[in-house]
């Protein structure tokens, strides 16, 4: 940890970064914080807990106000996937953002069921094995159709329409949200129109979701949102060959019509 703090201090002194977005200890609670060269003493409170905050979401808040600053950000595997998508969507400039990599602990990787619990370059922690687990999707795929419908409807009916899943999502960076369109989503109604409220959000996660699971962690109704989004993520890679969160290369085929604009889905299975 001391070595890590020293590394950040060196980055400040060399002028490579003008701020470091990390986690600070506030009494018993680890909270996000922007460390700056003006207050190097704050680095004493720097901590790396097994708690995840939407770091890239916070980064966007800062970048919107300070688009020219060189910033360091503490990234886990999920944060790095989010940053890759943000670059593709032209929300951040990669040359201004320095990734300071954290490998997640085995405990955290297990509780997140994370398929990639480490970033490309690691500055703190040891790489642990990825967790490959799609039992949640399989459990639903094996249900008979009617049971599946009833299952999701009972889950969705718990929704209190807090918009927490959207608010905490690193990939929800649109200026306007279709879930706030009064013509499409009635106001003053909870649960919102089910299942369409959740399916629309799920659809928008296709090609975007980086499978960090913060949505499910933030859901006060314990709706298995992540399962839904993992499913659309799988559909995207199955039909359109796109996996969100990968570095560089191709962009989300649902949003970008570049040179691959004439590609059609590989197969449509209706069984």
């Amino acid at each position: 940890m001391e070595k890590f703090k020293k590394y950040i201090k060196e980055l400040f002194e060399s002028g490579e970064i003008e701020g470091f977005l990390g986690i600070r200890k506030n009494g018993l609670h680890p909270v996000p914080h922007l460390f700056t060269p003006e207050h190097p003493e704050e680095l004493e409170t720097l901590t790396i807990p097994d708690v995840r905050y939407p770091m890239t979401e916070i980064l966007l808040t800062i970048v919107r106000k300070y688009p020219d600053k060189k910033l360091g950000i503490m990234v886990r595997g999920c944060d790095e996937r989010a940053l890759n998508e943000l670059v593709k969507n032209q929300k951040i400039l990669p040359e201004l953002i320095k990734h300071i990599g954290i490998a997640c602990s085995a405990d955290l990787a297990a509780s997140c069921r994370c398929a990639q619990p480490y970033p490309e370059e690691i500055h703190y922690g040891e790489k642990v094995a990825p967790v490959e687990d799609r039992s949640d999707i399989e459990a639903i795929d094996t249900m008979p159709q009617e049971e599946r419908f009833d299952y999701w409807m009972s889950e969705f009916s718990k929704c209190i329409k807090c918009y927490g899943c959207r608010n905490i999502c690193s990939m929800c960076f649109c200026d306007q949200c279709t879930l706030e369109d009064n013509d499409l989503i009635a106001t003053g109604q909870a649960p919102p129109a089910i299942p369409i409220f959740h399916l629309i959000r799920a659809f928008h996660m296709a090609g975007r979701c980086i499978d960090c699971g913060l949505c499910e962690e933030a859901c006060p109704a314990h709706i298995p949102l992540r399962t839904l989004y993992r499913k659309v993520r799988e559909s995207m890679s199955g039909f359109l060959g796109y996996v969100s969160g990968t570095e560089g290369g191709e962009k989300d085929p649902l949003e970008f019509l570049g040179s691959e604009g004439y590609m059609v889905p590989s197969k449509i299975d209706e069984k």
């Binding site: 795929d141 399916l199 659309v232 559909s235 039909f239 359109l240």
Partner: peptide, 12 residues
């Protein structure tokens, strides 16, 4: 294509 797959997943 994606929407059909999603509908199938939720039992429609």
């Amino acid at each position: 294509t994606i929407l059909k797959d999603l509908l199938k997943f939720v039992g429609v």
